[in-house]
Simulated assay, not measured.
Amino acid sequence: MSEAVPNMDAPLTESTRNNVRWITLDREKQRNPLSLQMLHSLIDALERAGDDPAVRAIVIAANGPVFSAGHDLREMSKSDGESRESQVQRMREILDTCSRMMLGIVNSPKAIIACVQGTATAAGCQLVSACDLAIAADSAKFCTPGVNMGGFCTTPLVGIGRNVHRKHAMALALTGDAFSAEDAVRFGLINECVPGDLLVDRTTELAERIAAKSAQGIRHGKADFYRQVDMPIEDAFAYANEAMVRAMTSPDAEEGKAAFFEKRTPNWGDA
Score class of each variant (00 low, 15 high):
residue 131 C to A: 15
residue 115 C to Q: 13
residue 105 I to Y: 15
residue 102 M to H: 14
residue 127 L to Q: 09
residue 132 D to P: 06
residue 127 L to F: 15
residue 101 M to R: 04
residue 144 T to E: 08
residue 80 D to Y: 14
residue 86 S to E: 11
residue 115 C to T: 04
residue 120 A to D: 07
residue 132 D to W: 11
residue 139 S to R: 12
residue 75 E to I: 00
residue 124 G to A: 11
residue 116 V to G: 06
residue 115 C to N: 09
residue 126 Q to N: 15
residue 142 F to P: 03
residue 58 I to N: 04
residue 88 V to M: 10
residue 84 R to C: 04
residue 108 S to E: 05
residue 71 H to T: 03
residue 102 M to K: 04
residue 62 A to Q: 01
residue 71 H to W: 12
residue 105 I to K: 09
residue 141 K to N: 15
residue 72 D to S: 03
residue 136 A to L: 04
residue 113 I to K: 10
residue 115 C to V: 00
residue 109 P to V: 02
residue 114 A to I: 02
residue 135 I to P: 06
residue 88 V to E: 09
residue 119 T to V: 04
residue 140 A to S: 07
residue 120 A to R: 09
residue 114 A to C: 08
residue 90 R to Y: 05
residue 73 L to I: 00
residue 126 Q to H: 14
residue 107 N to C: 13
residue 132 D to C: 07
residue 83 S to C: 01
residue 111 A to E: 07
residue 105 I to L: 12
residue 90 R to A: 07
residue 139 S to N: 12
residue 79 S to D: 06
residue 98 C to F: 11
residue 65 P to H: 08
residue 65 P to E: 03
residue 57 A to S: 06
residue 126 Q to E: 15
residue 88 V to K: 09
residue 95 L to W: 05
residue 133 L to W: 14
residue 80 D to H: 09
residue 138 D to P: 09
residue 121 T to L: 11
residue 123 A to S: 14
residue 106 V to T: 10
residue 124 G to S: 06
residue 107 N to L: 07
residue 86 S to R: 08
residue 74 R to D: 11
residue 108 S to H: 13
residue 79 S to R: 14
residue 144 T to V: 06
residue 103 L to S: 15
residue 125 C to H: 11
residue 94 I to G: 00
residue 94 I to V: 02
residue 77 S to M: 01
residue 133 L to P: 09
residue 117 Q to H: 11
residue 68 S to E: 01
residue 62 A to S: 07
residue 79 S to G: 10
residue 99 S to H: 13
residue 144 T to M: 12
residue 108 S to N: 14
residue 126 Q to S: 15
residue 74 R to A: 07
residue 100 R to A: 08
residue 143 C to A: 14
residue 64 G to N: 03
residue 111 A to Q: 14
residue 97 T to W: 00
residue 96 D to W: 06
residue 60 I to F: 03
residue 63 N to S: 07
residue 137 A to E: 06
residue 101 M to H: 13
residue 72 D to P: 02
residue 102 M to L: 11
residue 128 V to S: 12
residue 126 Q to G: 14
residue 111 A to I: 03
residue 86 S to K: 08
residue 95 L to K: 07
residue 140 A to I: 01
residue 70 G to K: 01
residue 129 S to P: 04
residue 75 E to F: 00
residue 101 M to I: 02
residue 112 I to H: 10
residue 73 L to P: 02
residue 80 D to G: 06
residue 130 A to F: 11
residue 79 S to F: 07
residue 99 S to R: 10
residue 137 A to V: 02
residue 133 L to A: 12
residue 114 A to R: 08
residue 68 S to H: 02
residue 119 T to K: 10
residue 102 M to Q: 13
residue 69 A to Y: 03
residue 78 K to V: 00
residue 135 I to K: 09
residue 80 D to W: 15
residue 85 E to K: 08
residue 88 V to C: 06
residue 110 K to L: 09
residue 126 Q to P: 11
residue 143 C to Q: 13
residue 88 V to T: 11
residue 80 D to I: 01
residue 90 R to P: 05
residue 97 T to R: 03
residue 110 K to T: 05
residue 86 S to H: 12
residue 133 L to R: 13
residue 144 T to Q: 10
residue 82 E to A: 05
residue 134 A to Y: 12
residue 90 R to Q: 09
residue 58 I to T: 04
residue 97 T to L: 00
residue 69 A to D: 02
residue 65 P to A: 12
residue 116 V to A: 08
